[in-house]
């Protein structure tokens, strides 16, 4: 199917264009992949909901012609948990940045992975707080310069994919905005997966990150992705000393045998208890010989 037509079909009508994303930003590429995957999977009906947090990537819900919730910083996964758990037949897509996912929202992230709730989390990792002007994030590499690490960053970075895998997500994959064919494939797999799926997408931010770290143009950053991201099977064969500075991409986890949270809740909690007698203090007055009439009135009505 032709990509450009797809994108137009699913963009929200009447919403202010152009997007807020800078030229050279990868989010548009990701949005294209999302639309393609949704269309291929027949998920473009009324049942798909987008949830975003705060940041450039979290603006995706504004532009898509679906039900959408643009929430608070770090909490989109928790909001999405509420949406999905309350109405499990919805397809819930969370788009979040590295700050949303691994810093302020880290707790929600690992616990959603642990629960294996059927949410697709698309983490757009630009290694920086872009919207606020380029402060370091939990995925900023040691030594990199940002507005809050002007002398070089001293902290180590999180590996979001490893974090997701360790926390129990049942589908975890990484790709980049350079590897678009691969990106299309894993986003589609993630949408199709039942359970918590995490797709980490390396997507450079030249405006607030690249230009402060010796990348002259956005194109150089895409070239960096091309040269430094290595397919998982090649990565596994790579000797330890050759791995430094490189990033593996591919599917890290794809488990089908772990129960999905909403299904497990229905199966083990709702189904066996549905319509059982409530504990609501109703008593058979006669049988229990309860003295119902007392001199005091029963509370004060309002």
């Amino acid at each position: 199917m032709a990509f450009d037509r797809t994108a137009h079909k699913y963009l929200r009508k009447n919403f202010k264009m152009p997007t807020i994303w800078c030229s050279g930003c990868g989010i548009g590429i990701i949005l294209g992949s999302i639309f393609k995957a949704l269309e291929d999977l027949n998920m473009t009906g009324d049942n798909t909901v987008f949830v975003g947090g705060i940041g450039c990537s979290s603006r995706i819900p504004f532009y898509v012609d679906f039900d959408a919730l643009h929430t608070t910083h770090g909490r989109p996964i928790a909001f999405a948990t509420g949406v999905k758990f309350a109405k499990p037949d919805l397809n819930v897509v969370v788009v979040a940045g590295d700050g949303d996912t691994a810093a302020i929202g880290g707790n929600h992230f690992i616990h959603a992975c642990r629960r294996n709730i059927d949410i697709t989390l698309i983490v757009i990792n630009n290694k920086i707080y872009g919207m606020t002007g380029g402060q370091y994030s939990p995925t900023t590499k040691s030594g990199e310069k940002t507005t809050t690490s002007p002398y070089g960053h001293i902290e180590r970075s999180f590996d979001i994919s490893k974090l997701a895998a360790a926390a129990g997500a049942t589908y975890v994959a990484r790709s980049s905005v350079y590897h678009v064919t691969h990106l299309d494939k894993i986003i589609k797999e993630a949408f199709a997966h039942k359970g918590m799926s995490v797709v980490e997408i390396m997507s450079p931010c030249w405006t607030t990150h690249g230009r402060r770290n010796r990348f002259k143009t956005p194109v150089e950053m895409y070239k960096w992705l091309k040269d430094n991201m290595i397919p998982l099977n090649a990565w596994e064969k790579l000797p330890e000393d050759k791995r430094a500075g490189k990033i593996p991409y591919g599917v890290f986890v794809n488990k089908k045998d772990i129960p999905e949270y909403c299904e497990a809740y229905y199966e083990h909690i709702i189904k066996p208890n549905l319509n059982k007698k409530r504990r609501d203090f109703s008593e058979d007055i006669e049988a229990m010989k309860i003295k119902l009439e007392i001199k005091a009135k029963e509370g004060w009505h309002v």
Binding site: L69, A78, T81, G82, A86, H111
Partner: peptide
Amino acid sequence: PKVGGRFIQMEDELGSMAALVGASFA
């Protein structure tokens, strides 16, 4: 569960309140 409702113990109160709003819109 007896009335088909749902209960979830969240990871914290930040998430609890967020889940409430999500469920409300659902």
